[in-house]
Simulated scan of single mutants.
Amino acid sequence: MRSEQHPPKEVAFVKTALLMLDRSRLEAIDKELPHPLLLRDVLKDTGVQHATVFPLKHVRTSMGTNYQAVRHIVRDSMKVDQSGAFYDTLKWLAYRQWQAGSAANSPGFQCPHCREEITQGLAHNSDAGPCPHCNAEVFLSDVWGFHLDMEEDSAQESLAPFANIYYAGFLHDGEKEVVEAASVLSIARGSGFPTPSELGVMPMSFLNGMGEAASECRRFALDRMRAGDLVEASRILDAMEAVYEELITFDYSDAMTGGLRRTTDALRAVVERTRSDLTATTSQHELVEELKRTREALGK
């Protein structure tokens, strides 16, 4: 999809569907004169749809990302169009070739890879060169920043011109998954939680993602219990409870929080089950240890 604003923003919209049919119910329908209501009942709730939206910068080609492909296209087009007249003009301007005996470098510009300023520019009359900061190849055409219209670092910014997609929930779901992945990792490692600004997500996506991440961490707690590491299991449970205690303070309508209340209720059930499992495991562990001590005492 392409927006009408200038510079235009482009996003890719992917939607997939999974269709599951009950063959026994389907075979019970008359093949010659199928009743439409029976067909409706068979097809009801059989389609599971998934959709996502992402900036075209994240679409990869043989040249790398779409962003890098545009850089190559800009350079190659200037070299080909009008038998290279545009590119020759670019070099004439960049290297001040109207001055007799000029050995000037190109103007300074921002590296399209690391975003550092290449203050000394490119060497005189060169078509490309390495960035002094990241050593990645930069082109003379990068000097004028023709590729910058394709800069799509934020999905929110990319989708802003497409209100029907921006508010449809696809962006919210994608951001929520990012938050969930980052938060699960932080809980498992015992590091600090990420912030919405660090992840570049909206507040409601962050809150829901944190809730689902805490629920996912139950499996880590169970794994630690099975391994006999009750201290680590207790730490994970404490982190889950900390997330829950924060989420219950957001008492707003679902329209504002993206269904946070349901996420919080589900997390509460997970926390309670995990606490019950940890309590039972701790008691069993203490019983086993006591039996070991009793056996050792009787053996003496």
Rank of each mutant, 00 (worst) to 15 (best):
Q110K: 14
A128D: 08
T195R: 11
Q110L: 08
S205A: 15
G192Q: 13
N164S: 14
E116I: 04
M204E: 06
E180W: 04
F139H: 11
G169R: 01
S186G: 05
N135A: 15
P132R: 12
H172E: 05
A103T: 08
G121A: 03
L148P: 00
A103I: 08
A100W: 14
P112T: 10
G145L: 05
S102N: 06
N208G: 06
Y167V: 06
N105G: 09
P112Y: 05
G174A: 02
A100G: 06
A160I: 00
I118L: 09
F146D: 10
G200R: 01
F193A: 10
S106T: 07
F206Q: 02
L148G: 02
V179W: 05
F109G: 04
R219K: 15
A221R: 00
A103Y: 13
E180T: 03
H172N: 04
K176I: 00
S186E: 14
E157M: 14
H147Y: 08
Y166T: 01
A103F: 12
Q97F: 14
S141A: 15
S215E: 06
G145Y: 00
F206L: 01
S205C: 02
H133G: 10
F220G: 03
L122K: 02
G211V: 01
M210R: 12
A221V: 10
H147L: 07
V201Y: 08
F139P: 00
Q120S: 13
W92T: 08
L171V: 11
L93D: 01
Y166H: 15
A168D: 13
F109D: 00
S102M: 09
G192S: 15
A168F: 02
A188N: 06
P161D: 06
A128M: 15
W92L: 14
C111P: 04
H172S: 06
P194H: 10
P130S: 08
G101P: 04
L207K: 06
N208P: 03
L93G: 04
N105V: 06
T195K: 05
V184C: 05
F170E: 01
T89K: 15
A214L: 03
L122A: 02
L199W: 07
R96Q: 08
S102T: 04
H147I: 15
K176S: 05
F162R: 09
F162N: 04
R115S: 05
D153A: 14
G121H: 05
E152P: 02
L159S: 01
A136L: 15
E177W: 09
V138M: 09
V179F: 12
N208E: 05
C134Y: 09
D153W: 15
S191C: 10
L185V: 01
Y166G: 06
A104L: 11
F162C: 03
L140K: 05
F206N: 02
G190S: 11
L90Q: 12
V179D: 04
G190A: 10
H133K: 15
Y166W: 07
